[in-house]
């Protein structure tokens, strides 16, 4: 499977030379199309694996478990295109959600608790951004440190307890439907469109690509690199707290271990979507498609009663295969 997708990708990428190409061509000849083909393949395979799979309502319902990570992955896509990475969003989700729960439990009304969660998300993002843009430390290791720190602080704050008893209007965002589509999915689609436009047609979007392609060149071109990077880390913190609130609403309770291991899922989504790990290339469309690919694969395996052993193995393999494939496509196209 991977060999053919790589070959296909190479053929496409081979035709792509530099940035100056008509827009339709840039859209068509990219790793995203590989993701799209895989998505269709996965759907067919999953339908054959289990007769219970092909049910749109079920797939949409199951998607809400991954959508929270996917919304963060959209912003993570921008961060990675800009040549940085953030491994701490899952921990930020947990910490901000625990802050929400704690503030609420202390007697504050829900809007205030939500505000506290969002502000703390910004603060955590700013903390990451400070290390990266002011102290100029590599984001990959800084966010490993903050991943442990934030998760640890969530544990200190909430202990091992489940904080729950939220008001009923706040609980169950995944059961609120528009047609047959759960609200989180709507949010995800809207966020994808907004960020896709931001990255595709605004000057900031172009600057993000430039920073990722060559930071030196970007600085010389007068782009305020550090400000944009700081903005991206802030956005990452903010979107993590939004995702954390969505999880809190879905579960009706929060605990320090919420979203644990989510960093793997987020990075996996971005990589599956064909974003280049070294920055400068990638798209929201790819991340959007990859989200559904992941939903199909994960849900398909679970409903087919495939044991978690195999699932962990497949997820790990997928991550490696997807970066190897993407990397290969881009390396070819650079020649």
């Amino acid at each position: 499977m991977s060999a053919s997708e790589q070959r296909q990708g190479v053929n496409q990428a081979g035709r792509e030379s530099a940035a100056a190409k008509p827009r339709w061509k840039i859209l068509l000849v990219r790793p995203e199309s590989v993701t799209f083909v895989l998505l269709i393949l996965a759907t067919i395979v999953a339908s054959h694996l289990s007769p219970f799979f092909a049910d749109l309502g079920f797939i949409l319902e199951s998607s809400t478990y991954y959508i929270e990570f996917a919304i963060v992955a959209l912003v993570l896509t921008l961060v990675i295109i800009a040549g940085e990475i953030d491994l701490s969003p899952a921990a930020m989700m947990a910490l901000t959600a625990c802050i929400f729960g704690t503030v609420l439990k202390a007697g504050a009304p829900v809007p205030l608790a939500m505000a506290a969660s969002l502000v703390s998300g910004l603060a955590l993002g700013a903390f990451n951004g400070f290390f990266v843009t002011v102290l100029r430390l590599p984001s990959i290791i800084v966010t490993i440190g903050t991943l442990i720190l934030y998760r640890g602080l969530a544990q200190v704050l909430a202990g091992d307890k489940s904080i729950g008893s939220f008001p009923s209007w706040f609980v169950g965002i995944d059961y609120r439907m528009v047609g047959i589509v759960p609200v989180p999915v709507i949010i995800f689609v809207l966020a994808s469109i907004a960020l896709g436009l931001f990255l595709g047609i605004t000057i900031y979007g172009r600057q993000i690509y430039q920073i990722g392609t060559s930071e030196m060149a970007a600085i010389h071109a007068g782009i305020r690199v550090r400000r944009i990077k700081m903005g991206l880390f802030l956005a990452s913190g903010l979107v993590s707290s939004i995702a954390g609130l969505m999880t809190a609403s879905r579960l009706g309770s929060v605990r320090y271990d919420l979203a644990s291991g989510g960093e793997l899922t987020m990075v996996l989504i971005v990589m599956l979507g064909g974003t280049y790990i070294f920055g400068g290339r990638g798209s929201i469309l790819g991340t959007f498609l990859a989200t559904w690919l992941l939903v199909i694969i994960a849900t398909g395996m679970t409903v087919a009663n495939i044991a978690i052993n195999a699932q962990l193995t497949v997820m790990g393999l997928l991550l490696i295969v997807s970066i190897v494939a993407t990397n290969w496509i881009y390396a070819r196209s650079q020649r």
Binding site: Y65, S253, L258, A259
Partner: peptide, 10 residues
């Protein structure tokens, strides 16, 4: 806390 949910739904 949440790891059982996808299995349950499936």
């Amino acid at each position: 806390a949440t790891s059982q949910i996808p299995f349950l739904t499936a």
